[in-house]
Amino acid sequence: MLDDRARMEAAKKEKVEQILAEFQLQEEDLKKVMRRMQKEMDRGLRLETHEEASVKMLPTYVRSTPEGSEVGDFLSLDLGGTNFRVMLVKVGEGEEGQWSVKTKHQMYSIPEDAMTGTAEMLFDYISECISDFLDKHQMKHKKLPLGFTFSFPVRHEDIDKGILLNWTKGFKASGAEGNNVVGLLRDAIKRRGDFEMDVVAMVNDTVATMISCYYEDHQCEVGMIVGTGCNACYMEEMQNVELVEGDEGRMCVNTEWGAFGDSGELDEFLLEYDRLVDESSANPGQQLYEKLIGGKYMGELVRLVLLRLVDENLLFHGEASEQLRTRGAFETRFVSQVESDTGDRKQIYNILSTLGLRPSTTDCDIVRRACESVSTRAAHMCSAGLAGVINRMRESRSEDVMRITVGVDGSVYKLHPSFKERFHASVRRLTPSCEITFIESEEGSGRGAALVSAVACKKACMLGQ
């Protein structure tokens, strides 16, 4: 009897593995994704193909990295998701002549009506938060230079001027797309009239992360975010950046690689679950690469896999709870928690219980395998993109072996128990001629924006502006 049951459990697990095998990517698959990513990057950089390229390769006008001589107080704003952060950054000489960066910050959550109302409502709310922060720190009387981390696709015309191309991540505030974001912020500050600010720089969160990590390690020339969304930036040779005049030196390019796949480059790798996630998203047909990796989508992918296993009578005796059938019910943090389970399955059992399920031991094991399959594919897909960037940098610099540091931020990278190990191992397999160091950014977005502002202020002083 026991043997029969054991055989049935083994057969069930084997069927589960057959279904989950769809998520496995072979090294040849990853090399294919990497080569296609490089081709799209090239198209994004070139003037004649930029418009139709899915990977936009947006110039950021960040050319210099901090040298350690900029000092002063800077205000930093960070808008990239449902939370908005205001930070005071003091850049100065530390002990023994070292450079020191001290920060104080406060988080504000953005109400739904500000995210989806008008641009005026959104930026009025942001300036209200700045006003509140300055009151708390008794700094209303000071006109501070301000660095703005704005983590949406922007076409820069200068370091302090950028046109919002399109909202992502659930934002829909009308009247912002096609307009200068810094102008919208300046107008809102003017409307309030109770404080003055000098907006000197606007950067993407990947750029802010790279600059913040450069402060720790001067070989950091790539910034990457794996959180709600997924994106990367890197220092490109100016001669390859056709959208900006000049051939000397390097400029940081914001790849906006989340949109890779929007022209069909990933079609052969998309599964039924991916198509369902895409169809029910706020932007169907867009940001397809990001939807395979980002935390906004990972939990939902797992939920759809679990429903398939229920329908195949391989999980929960073929019956799903009402909660499990509800879109968004299986949160991405559950994926991390399930994979963090120590082996007694308590954590998995508790999560499934909150979803109205009474799982068996085998159910718990199957749910864990589903989570591992989805998150491992995410790590491997992400590795193909980064390997594409790094191999490109090595080739354009004609280096036999390139040493490089990548600064990384984002909740999936930082909080998932195995993502970074799987990701690092896969990147290294795909970049055999590179020695890569990964560092995690601390308060990256805010500190990085302030350091970019410090560079901009120093330049302005040198130019006598």
Results as ranks from 00 to 15, higher is better:
residue 97 G to L: 12
residue 348 I to Q: 08
residue 451 L to F: 15
residue 363 D to K: 09
residue 214 Y to F: 15
residue 373 S to W: 06
residue 454 A to M: 14
residue 2 L to P: 06
residue 249 G to L: 06
residue 368 R to K: 09
residue 84 F to V: 03
residue 105 H to V: 04
residue 274 D to Q: 00
residue 139 M to I: 07
residue 200 V to Q: 00
residue 278 D to V: 05
residue 252 C to M: 12
residue 271 L to Q: 03
residue 37 M to T: 09
residue 343 G to E: 06
residue 177 E to C: 00
residue 315 L to I: 04
residue 157 E to C: 07
residue 377 R to M: 00
residue 407 G to C: 08
residue 164 L to I: 03
residue 8 M to W: 11
residue 221 E to S: 14
residue 195 F to W: 02
residue 252 C to D: 00
residue 125 Y to D: 03
residue 77 L to C: 02
residue 462 M to I: 11
residue 299 G to T: 02
residue 334 F to R: 13
residue 154 V to E: 01
residue 215 Y to D: 14
residue 337 Q to S: 10
residue 284 P to H: 14
residue 418 S to T: 07
residue 91 V to I: 15
residue 447 R to L: 15
residue 93 E to V: 06
residue 149 T to F: 04
residue 348 I to A: 10
residue 412 V to E: 05
residue 88 L to Q: 12
residue 76 S to I: 02
residue 327 R to V: 11
residue 375 S to F: 08
residue 113 D to H: 11
residue 365 D to I: 14
residue 213 C to V: 04
residue 38 Q to Y: 07
residue 144 L to Q: 04
residue 167 W to H: 05
residue 436 I to M: 09
residue 153 P to N: 01
residue 55 V to T: 06
residue 108 Y to D: 00
residue 60 T to K: 04
residue 326 T to H: 13
residue 103 T to Y: 07
residue 163 I to P: 02
residue 25 L to Q: 14
residue 205 D to A: 00
residue 214 Y to A: 15
residue 115 M to W: 02
residue 322 E to N: 14
residue 394 R to F: 08
residue 407 G to H: 00
residue 7 R to I: 11
residue 195 F to M: 02
residue 4 D to G: 09
residue 193 G to S: 09
residue 329 A to S: 15
residue 279 E to L: 15
residue 192 R to G: 03
residue 182 V to W: 04
residue 26 Q to R: 15
residue 320 A to T: 11
residue 311 D to E: 15
residue 179 N to Y: 08
residue 121 M to F: 09
residue 391 N to L: 12
residue 158 D to N: 04
residue 299 G to L: 05
residue 138 Q to E: 02
residue 292 L to P: 13
residue 12 K to V: 10
residue 256 E to P: 00
residue 201 A to E: 04
residue 393 M to S: 06
residue 169 K to S: 02
residue 361 T to A: 12
residue 106 Q to G: 04
residue 355 L to R: 06
residue 52 E to M: 15
residue 150 F to P: 03
residue 76 S to F: 03
residue 454 A to I: 12
residue 348 I to S: 12
residue 179 N to V: 10
residue 454 A to K: 02
residue 307 L to M: 05
residue 292 L to W: 08
residue 376 T to R: 11
residue 18 Q to G: 08
residue 291 K to C: 00
residue 175 G to P: 02
residue 145 P to D: 11
residue 53 A to G: 01
residue 299 G to C: 04
residue 394 R to L: 08
residue 181 V to T: 00
residue 450 A to V: 00
residue 305 V to T: 15
residue 112 E to P: 10
residue 69 S to G: 14
residue 30 L to K: 09
residue 125 Y to I: 05
residue 85 R to G: 03
residue 253 V to G: 02
residue 422 R to Y: 12
residue 402 M to R: 11
residue 8 M to R: 10
residue 310 V to L: 13
residue 251 M to D: 13
residue 80 G to R: 04
residue 91 V to G: 05
residue 162 G to T: 01
residue 241 V to C: 02
residue 99 W to S: 15
residue 116 T to G: 07
residue 265 E to G: 11
residue 51 E to Y: 09
residue 85 R to P: 05
residue 16 V to K: 11
